[in-house]
Amino acid sequence: MKTLLKNRKALVGLAIIATIAILAIAAPWLTEYNPATRTGRPHQAPSMDHILGTTRIGQDVFARVLYGARTSLMVGFGAGLLITVVGTVLGIVSGYRGGKTDEVISFFTNMVLVVPNLPLLLVLAAFIGQASPVVIALILGATSWAWGARVTRAETLSVKQKDFVKSAEMMGEKQWRIMAFEIFPNVISIVGINFIGSVIFAIITQATLEFLGLGDPRAISWGNMLFAAQKASALSVGAWWEILTPCFALAFLGIGMSLLNFAVDEIANPRLRTGNRLGRWSLLVRNGEGRL
């Protein structure tokens, strides 16, 4: 955690996410408008009354983007957590137990990996009908754990060989205790990378599903804002604010999450770290203090 706070990428990423979270929580104080109801004339350009303009049916875009952040964050982190939990449990169990259990789980994992995710989600969501954010989070959790299970399994296989696991086995420790208290803490960095990656995936996918018209249109979320704007041909009629606002919100959150992702990657894999030393090195070479 300390190393995370020292990393510049991580700090910027965390700051972006924190900003969005604070704006989402403080939404009722930042805007007087109800995001769901008509509060002005349709497609009004940004003005003092409506900072980011209004939608085709006269809802306030600023209010919608603030409240929508709540949905994006909750679905992102909720589904991300679900994906990570399923992937981690399956990965550790199959890696540690080995044998038949491993064969079965690995087979399913590999299978899920080659069935394209978005088309599968489209079919699921289409049959479910208008999927609310909670339902979207659930189906994401059910279908997107495979990558996490695979990398966690690989890591478990190497941890399993370590002496402390062997000694716990010798002492007759129960299997679930070994997995929970010996293996899990040692694959935590993979779990962390998996979690952040899953959150990014969940945010993007939720927005995509809703944009394609598979979400519950009553839910206030960035994906639904895009869907509504696209349906209202916002770009063609010149209502750029209606479409660019959720665009930038999503891009901003995506960039924040990715910065965090890369920072965690660098911390888990020291070879990728650049740090300060290369700068110091160049300076010394330039000053004639040495060479290669």
Binding site: R277, G290, R291, L292
Partner: peptide
């Protein structure tokens, strides 16, 4: 053979003479 890469640094004043020639 001067195979080092940053952040390794051969400090000034060092000499590696091969047949009288400084490799550095």
């Amino acid at each position: 053979s001067r195979l080092h890469r940053p952040p390794a640094l051969i400090r000034k004043g060092s000499e590696i003479l091969l047949d009288g020639r400084d490799v550095l």
